[in-house]
Nucleic acid binder design. Structure first.
Length: 570
RNA sequence: UGGCGAGUGGCCUAACGGUAAGGCACCUGACUCUGGAUCAGGGGAUUGAAGGUUCGAAUCCUUCCUCGCCAGCCA
């Protein structure tokens, strides 16, 4: 159940309309949905859309939503995935109560139903090889051919099926098939395979079974067992619906679930395919399923995306049947929106440039008061140490400022946020001509950040006191793929963004940032949102950049130079 | 080429026969101790095309076009 659904009080979509009508017209009194992941990988933002839909509907209509693992293929499934999926759904803010289920919980019942079909002459054991079955299946335009085993006596199929279960045959030797119609224009109805022999240990049932039901045979029946009323899945299962219905109609199942399909999520600059994500991980293109660049729930979490932002995003994009590609900016907008409201502000300098305030007494330290979040007065204030030697952001100074560059430059006065106005008096360079230090003066009357004479600098800079700031490593993240439609030219991996991660060492941050709790995302003023990485240690702080702030100056620069998609800073 | 599904401003989504709405993005201005946020305003859609029904069509009908999915013993 969602903690709250802030932005989408009146959101509706074609599925919710169906649900509402079913309730209104008495077809159901309680709505039961389910989220049915296969534990063969980590959940990603596309799954989040489905999770929000299924759990969201259950919550809105006073029903319930089950978490059911579709664990029918032991060769691809692992306990690690089962655990990660549960953690991710919970982190997203949803609760399945008592209803944690597995298709494997129903193996015995499913087997019994398969036997039922065999006895009814509606399923048979086929001795054809996989290749032969394919050849008999026909093509999109040509009907298939009946298997020579199609009409063998039910008793013979039954015997063979029992021996399949008993482990008498090797993988692939035989399968159980539904007897429907080899000439159907819907290929899924051309005697689909219901059971196959797989001698492999299952994460939950171990070696108890060596025959496993296919998705088609397991899914709808599991829905029926659990009393699912609305079995919501993605568009690619549309062609399976007739089979879903055929099985429900031909089996003595306890309920009549109905399947509805919606368009899966596609996002620009990212790939949402478990197959590809698995490759990124196994081939070491990223550091793991929870790499902050991954579109996985665990990656987004590590990156600092709040669950609320992900839920808001799901509400924002809606649910429909048209294939679509959502701009990643939409996700970033939803996330910035919650972070702007909730993230505490802190000072951090990513690329430090030394500033010496010449007219500020050596050894003196003042505690200046700074708002924790201008958006939220209740967040209160904190004090930050100010002293003679400071660090400011290197790109907040330009010796020869172009028009529209409002920050520090020789002779120019700017405000140091919540502290003093300073004026740059001298630029110190090393032998190579690189600026290494700025000699400045301050106006003591501007303490706190306001001038008694009403003077208003065009820029306000963030800063840290050199003697008080603590060092940190900061990892900057950008889109994993550099083009909006990765792989459109053929080679997906060639579109990997080489600048998707930039590691900055030698950053200087406000001391209390050392205490930022894991999972908390803060705003580094004027830079963006950041969160401590799990790699962070007391003495060796590591922060991940969740997202940059919107940056008009970076945009202006980008327009002028026509590069840097994510803009500036570091 | 068979079946199924879908086409609404750059992107997402709404309109359920009554004369195209909202969000994101973009642009402009105001305000601002974050070039953030906020506020105000703006540009932009002959609703894939062509016919037809109707007083009236994004919605109904016909034909066509385009895109997606289906020929795993994956899900």
């Amino acid at each position: 159940m969602s903690t709250e659904t802030p932005t989408a009080a009146e959101r509706s979509d074609f599925i919710r309309e169906i649900v509402a009508a079913d309730l209104r017209e008495g077809r159901h009194t309680t709505i039961v949905t389910r989220f049915p992941p296969e534990p063969n990988g980590y959940l990603h933002i596309g799954h989040a859309k489905s999770i929000c839909l299924n759990f969201g509907i259950a919550a809105e209509f006073g029903g319930r939503c089950h978490l059911r693992f579709d664990d029918t293929n032991p060769v691809k499934e692992e306990q690690e995935y089962l655990d990660a999926i549960e953690a991710d759904v919970r982190w997203l803010g949803f609760d399945w109560g008592e209803h944690l289920h597995h298709a494997s919980d129903y193996f015995e019942q499913l087997y019994a139903w398969a036997v039922h079909l065999v006895k009814a002459g509606k399923a048979y054991v086929d001795d054809l090889t996989a290749d032969e079955i394919r050849e008999h299946r026909g093509t999109l335009t040509e009907p298939g051919q009946n298997s020579p085993w199609r009409d063998r006596p039910a008793a013979e199929s039954l015997d063979l099926f029992e021996r399949m279960r008993a482990g008498e045959f090797p993988n692939g030797a035989r399968v159980l098939r539904a007897k429907i119609d080899m000439a159907s224009p819907n290929i899924n109805l051309r005697d689909p395979v219901l059971y196959r022999i797989v001698h492999a240990a299952h994460p939950r049932t171990g070696d108890a079974w060596c025959v496993y039901p296919t998705y088609d045979f397991a899914h709808g029946q599991s829905d029926a067992i659990e009393g699912i009323t609305h079995s919501i899945c993605t568009l690619e299962f549309e062609a399976h619906r007739p089979l879903y219905d055929w099985l429900i109609e031909n089996l003595p199942v306890p309920s009549r679930p109905r399947q509805y399909e919606f368009a899966r999520l596609n996002l620009t600059h990212t790939v949402l395919s478990k197959r590809v994500l698995l490759r990124l991980v196994t081939e070491g293109r990223v550091r793991g399923w929870d790499d902050p660049r991954m579109p996985t729930i665990s990656g987004l979490r590590r990156r600092g995306f709040p669950a609320e932002g992900i839920r808001d995003f799901a509400a924002l994009i809606g649910v429909a049947k048209a294939d679509s590609v959502v701009e990643i900016g939409m996700l970033e907008h939803a996330v910035r929106d919650v972070l702007n409201r909730t993230a505490p502000r802190r000072f951090a300098v990513l690329d430090p440039l030394r500033v010496v305030v010449e007219d500020y007494p050596e050894g003196q330290v003042e505690e200046v008061e700074v708002a924790n979040n201008p958006e939220d007065p209740a967040a209160g204030t904190r004090t930050v140490a100010f002293s003679r030697e400071l660090w400011i952001e290197r790109d907040d100074f330009l010796e020869e400022p172009p028009a529209k560059f409002f920050r520090l430059a020789p002779g120019r006065e700017v405000r140091l946020r919540s502290a003093y106005f300073i004026t740059c008096r001298e630029v110190v360079k090393d032998e190579a001509g690189r600026v290494v230090e700025l000699r400045c003066t301050h106006d003591p009357s501007t303490r706190g950040g306001d001038a008694p004479d009403g003077r208003r600098p065009k820029a306000t800079l963030h800063w840290v006191s050199a003697a008080h700031a603590v060092p940190a490593e900061v990892r900057l993240y950008d889109h994993l793929f550099s083009r909006p439609d990765p792989g459109a030219d053929g080679d997906l991996f060639a579109d990997l963004n080489p600048a998707s991660e930039t590691v900055l060492r030698g950053c200087r941050v406000e001391p209390d940032l050392a205490e930022t709790p894991a999972g908390a995302t803060v705003q580094f003023e004027r830079l963006g949102y950041f969160c401590p990485d799990p790699d962070s240690r007391p003495g060796r702080l590591v922060f991940n950049r969740t997202l940059t702030l919107k940056d008009t100056w970076a945009k202006l620069q980008a327009q002028g130079r026509h590069d840097t998609p994510q803009g500036g800073r570091g």
